[in-house]
Amino acid sequence: MVSDNVIVRVRDMSFYRGERAIYDEVNIDIPQGKITAIMGPSGTGKTTLLRLIGGQLRPDAGVIEVAGKNIARMSRKELFAVRSRMGMLFQSGALFSDLSVFENVAFPLRVHTQLPEDMISDLVLLKLQAVGLRGAAELMPAELSGGMARRVALARAIALDPDIVMYDEPFAGQDPIAMGVVVQLISKLNKALGHTAIIVSHDIQETFSIADYVYVVADGQVLARGTPEELQATDQMQVKQFIQGLPDGPVPFHYPAMSVAEQFS
């Protein structure tokens, strides 16, 4: 168990989508200032977990505490205040398509601060510099490549110097160079700004290279937890299959069907 300061505490949390339990009495602790990864096969509701932490969804049972406060009990106003301390990088980048790159990064600053225009401009260019895209400030999101869009979104997520940054599949669908850039950025920003990072991903290599602590979730349960080294040494079959990327194992390769002999007889 991680003993240092826990910033996000999930206790006995259940969440249902219709009849299906996405989470069934799950306990997760996110330590402050570290990079914690939530890993698991596709379709296990990892993005849902981020939305639960961000208060966009409410758990059906159990408690989610962010900095000691139950997020489901907050009023709309409190919730928006807490969210100004969180940054989230969405899978698709989710840049506002009608605003320029500059205005996208400036958006949270304009909403939450009353800073004068020249200060906002400096801050925005600083954040863009951090992701290496200061030169792209006047472009529109439609003119960016996928990797660039994600870096701009990252600049926007850290615009307010949040305490928690959540990354939703930051490595998915990127070419190797862009992926390397993002990996490096996440780790560098975490060290430099001292914020807590939560990464949701199924890319083993990249995630293990930067994460301090890893949770493996599947079927609504936490299957395993530990440092990357501990998990690599595990002998739990399901975790092993996931980490080593074996096609068949406890998670079957075949979709349930009648037996081969029966089908082709």
């Binding site: 939305r51 709309r76 928006f80 969210r83 958006f107 949270p108 909403v111």
Partner: peptide
């Protein structure tokens, strides 16, 4: 969703 996360309704 991202607008909501930034704290704008």
């Amino acid at each position: 969703a991202s607008m909501e996360m930034i704290g704008v309704d």
